[in-house]
């Protein structure tokens, strides 16, 4: 699989997780579906989107490994807003986070679109 295709696949994965978590939060209260989706989202998606948006080499394994700590770090720092600012709640932080990551995934998908001309002079 080419590097471009790998990036598209990762961005698609991030987008699917964002959408699936948003839908599950809206339509079901059962943790059976929401817990695995939440874990996938908070542990992988923010970092994956970030590493796809910047240039960090072409080693897929490194990207995947870095996605986890970056996701955890970004999520931790965002959750700090809830514990330190009385006006902000968990709901607002999660909604903002989901929207930001979905937007980032769409940007990566756009940037790696095969319809885009390459090396046009």
């Amino acid at each position: 699989m080419s590097w471009r295709a790998s990036r598209r696949l990762l961005a698609l994965y991030a987008l699917v997780v964002c959408v699936a978590l948003s839908v599950s939060q809206a339509f079901t209260a059962s943790p059976a579906l929401r817990l695995p989706l939440s874990l996938l989202f908070f542990f992988t998606v923010p970092g994956l989107v970030l590493t796809q948006l910047i240039h960090l080499g072409r080693d897929l394994r490194t990207h995947l490994a870095l996605a986890i700590p970056l996701s955890l770090a970004i999520s931790t720092l965002l959750s700090l807003l809830v514990t330190q600012v009385p006006a902000i709640g968990f709901g607002e932080v999660t909604s903002f986070f989901l929207a930001a990551c979905a937007f980032g995934s769409v940007v990566v998908l756009g940037a790696t679109s095969s319809a885009r001309p390459r090396n046009v002079r």
Partner: peptide, 23 residues
Amino acid sequence: WPGFFGLAALILRSAGLHSALHV
């Protein structure tokens, strides 16, 4: 030092759970 607890609470709230006992 609430970073870890904030993250855990964020995930639990997103998952619809009310305690970290079984997690």
